[in-house]
Amino acid sequence: MYDRTIVNVDSIEGLVSNPKHAAYCTSKAGIHGLTRGRSTVAPKASVATQLRRGGSTPT
């Protein structure tokens, strides 16, 4: 059982590049990597690490 939970919100653009959104894609790729890296350390610290991929929102 985990004492704490970290939830990071990701985007598909963190996995697939989009030239018009270079900075956004880079930041989401960083979140993806951070979450994956943290998930290998977190079980030892009783922290659950989850990655949630958000959906598109028409504006």
Rank of each mutant, 00 (worst) to 15 (best):
G14S: 09
P43Y: 05
S27L: 06
G54P: 01
T40I: 08
L15H: 12
S27A: 15
A48S: 02
K20L: 15
T49D: 06
K44R: 13
K20P: 01
Y2I: 03
D10W: 11
R38Q: 10
N18W: 07
A42Y: 00
K28I: 07
R53K: 07
E13H: 04
V9K: 07
N8Y: 06
V41I: 12
K44H: 14
I12S: 13
L15G: 11
K44V: 10
R4L: 14
S17G: 14
T49W: 02
E13C: 11
S17K: 03
S56C: 13
R36G: 06
T35L: 01
V16I: 10
R53D: 00
G33C: 00
A29Q: 04
K20A: 14
T26I: 05
H21G: 11
R4K: 13
P58A: 08
D3S: 15
P43L: 13
S11A: 15
R4E: 10
A48T: 04
G33N: 04
I31R: 03
K20D: 14
G55Q: 00
N8F: 12
K44D: 15
I6H: 06
P19Y: 07
P43C: 06
S46M: 05
H21E: 12
P43H: 03
A23F: 11
N18G: 01
Y2F: 15
A22S: 09
G37S: 14
S11I: 04
R52V: 07
R38I: 02
V47F: 03
E13M: 15
R36P: 00
D10T: 10
A45H: 14
T40N: 01
T59Q: 11
C25H: 03
G14Q: 06
T5K: 05
N18V: 12
H32G: 02
A48I: 01
K28N: 00
L34Y: 05
A29C: 07
V7R: 07
L51M: 09
T59E: 00
G54N: 02
G37Y: 03
A42H: 03
L51W: 00
T5N: 11
K28P: 05
G33R: 03
K28T: 08
R36T: 11
I31E: 04
V9R: 07
M1F: 06
P43I: 04
N18K: 14
G54S: 08
M1I: 06
N18R: 13
Q50R: 13
I12M: 15
H21V: 10
T59P: 08
H32Y: 09
P58G: 10
S56D: 12
P43M: 06
V16E: 09
P19H: 10
K44A: 15
S56E: 09
H21P: 04
T26K: 06
T57V: 15
P58F: 08
T35S: 13
I12L: 14
A23Q: 14
I31M: 09
V7D: 14
H21Y: 15
R38H: 11
L15Q: 12
A42V: 02
H32W: 05
A45D: 13
R53N: 02
Y2H: 14
R38C: 12
G14V: 02
I31C: 07
D3E: 15
A23K: 01
I6P: 00
A42P: 02
A45M: 09
E13Q: 12
K20S: 13
L15T: 08
T35N: 02
T35R: 00
R36A: 09
N8W: 07
S56G: 10
M1W: 11
